[in-house]
Nucleic acid binder design. Structure first.
Lengths: 184, 184
DNA sequence: CAAGATAACTTAACATGTTAAACAAATTTC
DNA sequence: GAAATTTGTTTAACATGTTAAGTTATCTTG
């Protein structure tokens, strides 16, 4: 996304452009700057990784998000919907739909908290656990292969940087550019 | 995703809910391993970045993908649909729908190639260009702020690593775990 | 050149992303 | 303690992700 923009028209990225690029620079190396933007880099990298996992998940009838939820549930006894949304990194509405489906497939169980009737408590079912156990070996193998190819050291370093990036932006308040609409 | 799994001790999912502390390891550090997986790290990092841009885009009536397309179009005179899908990193069906919408809003122009009637050639309209120019300043400011907060040096380093990760996985053939279905 | 195979899109169908609104249960206020 | 507000979750509505199938045009072969 927001990579440095150069409005079409005059493009003098750096002086001394003696090549015959003229207006055709685009044809030569299309989208150089654009494809290098941080959001695009992150998107492509993630897709490259997920592309490895999706086929295996699909063979077990799971989407990436469904897997994230079941995977998260294996680490806890029960968990509240909101907390589950946080750890599985899903928005409420998506989670709500997926839980409905997973419950219908008997992969999870659900009840309402007695202390607070608004809250729902979710846990994985034995059937869901079996499914996870069936998928896990392949997933682990793929993850190991990725680690091997990229290098364990570098992988750790990358994840450190990603975490740092997150923290760097956590405090950055999002400016909606106008549209302030007087508080009420 | 596929981070090393640890099937936390069998937690008798159904019935016998008496031991409310049994496998408490979970309560202690929920989702430590899971949240550290590479796909989750990439997803969270990207979301942290995009969260900064979305409000501004939204104020201009653009989604992230629509912006990507228009942004890509500013760098070329015209481009074929397939090539556009590649640079904007969108799947054909998504692109097809979005182009239909952008054309209806007169933000892009479209014609079929005379040499090959299957191919569609797309270009940005003057209206689309004006829109881009209206959004660009804010986007650039946000990108600059991100660069400043995280550090230009580190940002470049991060993008290098992401590119390397992509290349590492490019050749890794995706194993669908069985399901070989005899070739036809 | 006509049938078969490819290629470039587009449609279809289902799942999720994203924002807004609805709802019901708790909490706060006056 | 009832009205107003907040909180936890779900619905709704629209846009995109993802895979499969459909369409039309081009290329390959025999």
């Amino acid at each position: 996304m927001g990579g440095p923009l150069k409005m079409s028209g005059k493009k003098s990225p750096n002086g001394s452009r003696s090549d015959q690029e003229g207006t055709a620079e685009a044809r030569r190396a299309p989208m150089r700057e654009f494809s290098r933007s941080l959001p695009m880099s992150l998107l492509r990298a993630r897709e490259a990784v997920m592309r490895q996992f999706r086929p295996s998940l699909r063979n077990h009838g799971l989407t990436e998000q469904q897997w994230r939820i079941l995977r998260a549930l294996t680490a806890v006894d029960t968990i509240e919907v909101t907390e589950l949304a946080r750890v599985a990194f899903l928005l409420g509405p998506s989670l709500s739909r997926i839980l409905r489906d997973l419950e219908a497939r008997d992969l999870i169980e659900r009840r309402t908290a007695k202390a607070d009737l608004r809250r729902g408590e979710v846990s994985i079912s034995s059937k869901g656990l079996k499914l996870i156990e069936a998928v896990a070996p392949t997933s682990e193998a793929i993850y190991a292969e990725i680690t091997h190819r990229f290098g364990a050291r570098k992988l750790a370093e990358l994840q450190d940087m990603l975490g740092e990036l997150e923290r760097s932006l956590a405090a950055m308040e999002v400016a909606g550019e106008g549209e302030v609409e007087a508080d009420e």
